[in-house]
Simulated assay, not measured.
Amino acid sequence: MKLGTILVRKKLISQAQLDQDLNLVDVTGKRLGELLLDKGEISDSQLKDALNEQYWRKNGFWIID
């Protein structure tokens, strides 16, 4: 699952914010998490939690949805 999808599902950002930020990712070349931190849209701990979820989902260990 992509990071942006996880953040929207956790209601940390809206789908509209994600769409706008993905356009900025293309322009700036920054990674989504880095961009969201720079803009102050999420905190370090929120990014860490979302990245952990992404890792565990990717490796087939995430069972709570």
Rank of each mutant, 00 (worst) to 15 (best):
L3N: 01
L3F: 08
L3P: 10
L3M: 03
L3R: 05
L3S: 11
L3H: 13
G4A: 06
T5L: 09
T5F: 05
I6G: 06
I6E: 11
I6T: 10
L7K: 07
V8P: 02
V8E: 07
V8I: 00
R9I: 12
R9L: 13
R9H: 01
K10G: 01
K10R: 03
K11Y: 14
K11I: 06
K11H: 08
K11F: 02
K11S: 11
L12H: 14
L12Q: 05
L12N: 12
I13H: 07
I13Q: 04
S14V: 03
S14N: 09
S14G: 13
Q15D: 09
Q15R: 15
Q15E: 12
Q15T: 05
Q17P: 01
Q17C: 04
L18W: 09
L18E: 00
L18H: 10
D19R: 10
D19A: 04
D19P: 10
D19M: 02
D19T: 12
Q20S: 03
Q20G: 13
Q20P: 10
D21E: 07
D21S: 04
D21G: 00
D21K: 02
L22H: 15
N23R: 14
N23C: 03
N23Q: 12
N23D: 15
N23P: 14
L24S: 07
L24F: 04
L24D: 15
V25D: 03
D26F: 00
D26A: 10
D26Y: 05
D26L: 00
V27E: 15
T28G: 11
T28H: 12
T28W: 13
G29D: 14
G29V: 01
K30D: 10
K30F: 07
K30Y: 11
R31Y: 08
R31H: 08
R31Q: 06
L32K: 12
G33K: 00
G33D: 00
E34T: 12
E34K: 08
L35H: 06
L35Q: 02
L36N: 13
L36D: 09
L37K: 06
L37H: 13
D38A: 02
K39F: 06
K39G: 09
G40I: 00
G40S: 06
G40V: 06
E41W: 05
E41L: 10
I42V: 14
I42K: 15
I42N: 11
I42Y: 14
S43R: 07
S43F: 02
D44V: 03
D44Y: 09
S45Q: 14
Q46Y: 09
Q46C: 11
L47M: 03
L47C: 11
K48V: 14
K48G: 01
K48A: 07
K48E: 15
D49M: 13
D49Y: 11
A50K: 11
A50S: 11
A50E: 15
L51Y: 05
L51E: 14
N52S: 13
E53H: 03
E53M: 08
E53Q: 04
E53N: 01
Q54M: 04
Q54C: 08
Q54F: 06
Y55A: 02
W56L: 12
R57E: 03
R57I: 10
R57S: 10
R57F: 02
R57W: 01
R57Q: 03
R57H: 08
R57C: 00
K58I: 06
N59Q: 13
N59F: 05
G60L: 04
G60C: 01
